[in-house]
Amino acid sequence: MRNDPNAVMLFAAGFGTRMRSLTADRPKPLVTVGGRALIDHTLDLVRSSEIATVVANLHYLPEKLLAHLEGSGVQTLVETPDILETGGGLRNALPLLGDGPVFTANTDAIWRGPNPFSVLKDAWDPDQMDALLICVPRDRVLGHKGQGDFVIGPDGRLSRGPGHVYGGIQIIKTNGLHDFDEPAFSLNLLWNKMAENKRLFGLPYDGEWCDVGSPEGIPLAETLLEPRHV
């Protein structure tokens, strides 16, 4: 089993209900920000990090994403008849992703700053970590109303609580996925087990991040795409 991640799972199966009418005829990863589909912004980061294997799970209006991703090198899995959630979806994709640790990424955020995939890879320590999550300090977050998901301890270990928002990108070992009997389940359940074993870690992000989960997030995200004037 390899210890360094070289595959990424893009979560692209959700219904995007918070996007309201914008997802009536398209899946959320195809909502445009700055004239480009959300999933393409994420793919730019993936390609800059030279990750060899890219897999996306699809469920809602999958034919639209299949057409968009044709020729991109992204391997796709359509979850049918039911959506498998993040844990079940990742487990379903393991035959394509391989048996080592992998990146996972949500496809509904815009980043300005260091490439989150690269900074995670540089900080990854498989001897200590079962997962390493990129976490954004609350004052660097746009478009997200919550007070945060995690507290990062002095040693980098995570506990639940306000302070840092999970940015939707991580490195995670996948062997624990087989401990769950349900076909559909959240990765939160696996994180809880890792936290109990003191092997869930977080990395604070030194940049800005925008959650594009609702229409209100689109203009905020587009401000991050504007050139900076020094």
Rank of each mutant, 00 (worst) to 15 (best):
P162N: 14
P162H: 05
L84V: 12
D99Q: 09
W124E: 03
T86C: 02
P27H: 03
M19L: 15
Y60S: 10
G176W: 04
Y166N: 09
T32R: 14
P227Q: 12
L61E: 12
G163D: 06
H229Y: 04
G73T: 05
V141D: 04
F180E: 13
D149K: 02
G213S: 12
A52C: 07
I152V: 15
K64F: 01
L220N: 04
L120G: 02
V102P: 06
Y205W: 03
V212M: 03
A93L: 13
R47V: 01
L203P: 11
S159E: 07
G213E: 08
L38Y: 05
A123W: 04
I171N: 07
H41L: 07
Q170V: 08
P95T: 08
L90F: 02
G148L: 01
G168T: 04
T42P: 02
L66Q: 08
C135G: 13
A24K: 08
M129T: 01
L65N: 07
K64D: 01
A195I: 11
V165K: 05
F180C: 05
L10C: 00
L43Q: 00
L30G: 06
D25N: 13
L200N: 09
R140T: 14
D130G: 14
L158Q: 05
F103A: 00
F103I: 02
G153C: 12
V102K: 04
V33E: 04
V74A: 08
E50H: 14
N115D: 05
D149Y: 05
L203G: 10
I83V: 15
S214P: 03
V78I: 14
